[in-house]
Design a protein around this nucleic acid. Structure first.
Lengths: 103, 103
DNA sequence: CTAACGTATCAGCCCATGGTGATGTCAGTC
DNA sequence: GACTGACATCACCATGGGCTGATACGTTAG
């Protein structure tokens, strides 16, 4: 089974502020202003992070007047979760059979 | 529900070579020499990456004479998978109820 | 129309991190 | 004991990425 975890997605997930953003967006859709209030980060900084999350396919954007609502894409996270779960399952199998390449 | 994904674990996962290492270790336990053959990376480089994976609790080491066997820790990956799955579930719920903070 | 606001983009700084060669350490071999 | 091989550690360099201030763009309010 091929491990096809998108490296960009993982890089996008490997940042505390971005995880905080995702956690907030999991609760409800928010626009940048809300995220500025919640995280205390600057608008420019958040805009950068949101671009990374959007490019990675982790969040969706919905323009609403001059606001932009961001929401989390469950399928993207589920795909990551599934691939790690499968990798873990493979490892459990290998461990149960004590598979070990000889030197 | 608190999102407690360990940042170090995610950072450890956010590297293509380390993902390749984990994928190889999921199949069977290997020592550094095997990983050098499989990945084509230098021994020093691999040793660095393996230290990161070990510090993150993603792999186990088992000394065997002058060799060191590395194996993947399924529970660590399962924990990550579970947290992402839960975050995704929360987001699905929020989307179903169309939760959106007003501006 | 003009002003104010929400958001995106740009250029730059700085630090974290990946890669490397040199070296150290420990186990097994002669 | 001397040597070789497996692995870890160190110092160094180069690149990438996060943060920032300045600025541009589009939308709504007055």
């Amino acid at each position: 089974m091929v491990m096809s975890v998108d490296s960009d997605v993982l890089k996008a997930l490997a940042d505390p502020l971005r995880i905080q953003i995702l956690t907030l967006l999991a609760q409800e859709a928010l626009c940048t202003t809300h995220l500025v209030e919640e995280t205390g980060a600057r608008q420019t900084n958040l805009s950068n992070h949101l671009k990374i999350l959007r490019d990675a396919g982790l969040v969706d954007t919905e323009p609403c007047g001059r606001f932009t609502y961001y929401s989390l894409r469950p399928d993207a996270l589920e795909a990551v979760a599934a691939e790690f779960a499968e990798l873990a399952a493979t490892a459990r199998e290998a461990a149960a059979e004590n598979r070990k390449r000889s030197c």
